[in-house]
Write a protein that binds this DNA or RNA. Structure first.
Lengths: 151, 151
DNA sequence: TTAATTGCAAACAATTTGCCTGTTA
DNA sequence: TAACAGGCAAATTGTTTGCAATTAA
């Protein structure tokens, strides 16, 4: 499953003369099937369940490789650890409910457009961005039913 | 100058039974007159020019204190170091030039409004947010003249 | 075969902490 | 002077790197 990323990785490896090794397959697999934003230690923990011999150093080397290849996206949520997610999903931003810690993904084309405009006005093009809104429930009124994901 | 923050800090100290010491004054001063986003090491460097005896550990303890008191805001721009800026300025977001590390502040009322709308649509009110756009210079076209601040 | 890759441990960089002395209220 | 702070160095944490052994192509 998620063969799109696997194929992508194979292509990248061929292009760069890199080897498609066991550890790399395992780590890529862990990441493509993650629905959250695991950090390196968590990736290592999950990879170790599949192949206990994988070293944390290999995880770091591999995520860097995957990120450089555009297969992975990394996020610094501000707690000191770098978190990763597959880059093949549609871009989204995050609403974080500070009372529960829940993360709600959202997307606003208008905001996407505006930031594009702002960057261009300053003579830049956007490489990436991060938009996190920390919220709490409105005291009045009802919250829209929402599927939310943990970090 | 910037007595607003100094007063604020004095008030906080009184309220919490904390002492207004030499090192704390120096570090607060360095931060209130900073127009950029220095990290702890840079704050320490600047503080050392005023009082060479200040230890980096004191910088870390003091910025944490200041942040907990709402006098300072911290940002994790993604290069592993935490950066600080006084919390008394008008809210703004950041464009980060990934090639040079320069940080450009911007403000978009429209984005402010949109995020308000998004939060409300989900049944939340905004507590705070963080919006960082990582950019690189446009290959073509000229960049708008811009006063930019080093990180 | 052989250059890329890995595991391991040591190295690093940013930040935190323990401890004992110095200082502020 | 008594509790709070600071200096210093050691400890932690997350991440990177050197190197000899291993492995994919």
């Amino acid at each position: 499953m998620n063969s799109k990323l696997d194929e992508e990785f194979e292509r990248v490896c061929r292009d760069k003369g890199l080897r498609l090794t066991g550890p790399r397959r395992v780590i890529l697999n862990v990441l493509t099937k993650a629905t959250d934003h695991p950090d390196a230690i968590e990736v290592h923990r999950r990879a170790s369940l599949i192949d206990p011999g994988i070293a944390i150093a290999t995880v770091y080397r591999t995520v860097r490789l995957l990120e450089d290849s555009g297969i992975l996206e990394s996020h610094a949520f501000g707690d000191g650890r770098t978190r990763y997610e597959p880059a093949d999903r549609e871009h989204h931003d995050h609403l974080i409910n500070i009372e529960t810690g829940d993360v709600i993904e959202f997307r606003s084309d208008e905001i996407e457009r505006l930031q594009e405009e702002i960057a261009r006005a300053h003579g830049f093009e956007i490489v990436s961005h991060r938009f996190e809104i920390f919220v709490k429930p409105l005291k009045t009124g009802k919250r829209k039913k929402e599927s939310r994901s943990k970090r």
